[in-house]
Nucleic acid binder design. Structure first.
Length: 108
DNA sequence: CCACTGACGAGTG
DNA sequence: GCACTCGCCAGTG
């Protein structure tokens, strides 16, 4: 892999890779598991730098509201993520949000 | 080096 | 639950 990834993001990617199928994780949670709490923003920023890397289930990463956060008005991008999550059993309500209470990844 | 931006979270009222 | 504010820091110009 000639993928040059900053060591700061390496931990983030590692955590995302560990997200089990059918589960989702929030930015803050990933940052926390990556050992960099309060850096939720950098998690999202890191994703934007690797979204094109399909070796990582980035689609399982959502915000604390259980909503899919996209960088901009890319509905197609959102739809893609939502589609992938639904394919894993994740269900979205009419508000386009998922039940973190049921689908949030818990380590253990 | 400085200023602004950005897939966010948590706290307060 | 919603609106507002602060914090945190890499990337870009």
């Amino acid at each position: 892999m000639t993928l040059k990834k900053p060591s700061r993001y390496e931990a983030i990617y590692a955590v995302i890779r560990r997200i089990p199928k059918g589960k989702v994780a929030t930015y803050g949670q990933i940052a926390r598991l990556a050992g960099i709490p309060r850096h939720a923003r950098q998690v999202g920023y890191a994703l934007s730098a690797m979204t094109e890397d399909r070796t990582i289930p980035w689609h399982r990463v959502i915000n604390a509201k259980g909503e899919i956060s996209t960088r901009i008005t890319d509905e197609i991008f959102e739809n893609t993520q939502k589609m992938r999550l639904e394919a894993e059993g994740i269900v979205f309500n009419s508000e386009g949000r998922t039940s973190l209470h049921c689908y949030q990844w818990k380590k253990g």
